[in-house]
Amino acid sequence: MTGPPPVDGREPAAVTLRGATVRFGARTLWEELDLEIPRGEFVAVLGPNGSGKTTLLRVLLGLQPLDAGEVLVDGHPARRGGEGIGYVPQQKALPEDLPLRARDLVGLGLDGHHLGLGLRGRRERNRRVDAALDAVGAGRYARSPVGRLSGGEQQRLRVAQALVGDPRVLLCDEPLLSLDLAHQRTVSRLIDERRRNAGTAVVFVTHEINPVLPLVDRVLYLVDGRFRFGTPEEVMTSETLSELYRTDVEVLRVRERLVVVGVEESGHHHDAVVPAPGGAAR
């Protein structure tokens, strides 16, 4: 994996947003968003439903054009199908009769978007898929039908699927949702290892910061078109959040957890980056 030539001797930032603005009709989702995420950084994106967390991922994936400003991923303008991006969707149980084995699901993450049969380089492909499966401890069920694996096992495969292509940026859309605590820990540990070992930047959309709080370098908090970007210590304070929400909000630290009081817990949301086409949605 070779990146673009470094400008003035520095590695390009993994993600850069300058003056980024998205509007839906008359409604401005967010505007003048400036953001620079260096390699290896773990950024949590927080905010209530409808604040544009998922839209931010769509922008980085090149699926949603900006109304103003620019977006660079790994030094290049974001574009649909761009290389160097891994994507972990919300955990959703895969249909039991889905005609894929674990290794097929991971393999699609490597070259599923390429045309042709890919008969050349089969050996190298198999090697990379095996390595990705082993890295998440899924080698044991590599040949099992994905639909018959547990939610935790499926989400490990999702991480392997996102990492097999050696991405420089990993985008995660609520990847811990509906996983139990043990699996939440496993999945966040796998993501954390990756960014430490390979310098992959992580953009982690979540409604609940606590499971990943020890890993988070910076937080992007979106509320009603307003935003704050900074370390958890800077952003997750009563003062900052009260300003963002324009109401009295209190942030309490209870043991190692942050508890935000005064705003309605957004709870589980189920906005996907894309609606599943009916063709395969069962």
Binding site: L61, G62, L63, R79, R80, G81, G82, I85, Y87, P89, L98, P99, L100, L105, L108, G109, D111, G112, H113, H114, L115, G116, L117, G118, R158, Q161, L171, A272, V273, V274, A276, P277, G279, A280, A281
Partner: peptide, 25 residues
């Protein structure tokens, strides 16, 4: 032979396929 891989991706894992730029529609 040309579209098999993206078609399989779009047919079995549409959400991630779209995210990876597969022209599902």
């Amino acid at each position: 032979a040309v579209i098999y891989r993206p078609l399989l991706f779009a047919s079995t894992d549409p959400e991630v396929a779209v995210a990876r730029g597969v022209p599902v529609r």
